[in-house]
Amino acid sequence: MNKDIVRIHNLSFQYRPNEPYVLTDINLTIKEREWITIVGHNGSGKSSLAKFLNALFIPDEDGEVYIYGLNTKERQNQGKVRKLVAMVFQNPDNQLVAPTVEDDVAFGLENTGVPREEMIERVKESIKIMGLEGFEKQEPHRLSGGQKQRVAIAGVIAMKPKVVVLDEATSMLDPVGRKEVMEYIRRVHNDVNMTVIMITHDLNEALFSDRIIVMKEGKILKDAPPIEVLRDEELLKKSLLKPTFEFEVQSKLKEKGINLFEISPQITNQKELVDALCTWKQKM
């Protein structure tokens, strides 16, 4: 069995005393190489939770966060944890620091004192993985949103972390940019063997994941494989999430007495939906 890479135990959190809890009693385990999607409407506590994963936030007395067995409460672990868990944020303009693409990819490596020869190798490698060859000398403001996020991801994987946390990394992009970035995240997961924790409120982006974690008001409502979550209309309504197109069609048809689920229990994309509809038509 794969190793536990993230273990969160009874984590509760409020930004200031006397304010409502932003996270309440979170328990969560994530294994190496998993792809986890965290969904929830605005203000449900996703970003706050994410900041605990790389020791930007530290739990107070009760709760505990272990990354690769390292307790983030201990000061000497915090630097190591930041190296193990890398973060990509929402706004592509607010996370690129350096004047050119290659400088930005190198930024994290410079910070951690990686020798220059190794740095050059790793920058080149990450740029290649993220398909940014030819853009090395480009200035960030000349890139599209999707390209900027790819640069941010390249900067993160150059550090060779174990986990990449993407906090709504696609939510400010246009549909083309989203698709492009998703494609590269999948590559990071499959080819570079990283654990991916993706935060989003678009359920379409959750389809590839091993598990979906649904959050509402600082609590985990459900932690289950995509199909189970997507089919749970009650849950989606309760957590104010928009079902994917395919599932919306299925539930509307069900209201009319057509149960596609009996024909095909796994409809996640349009092709499968069309196939199921054709099969149903033939059976008529």
């Binding site: 790389n54 607010n94 910070n111 550090m159």
Partner: peptide
């Protein structure tokens, strides 16, 4: 925040 999380 981004810089800190990248080890600056």
């Amino acid at each position: 925040i981004a810089m800190e999380s990248r080890g600056y």
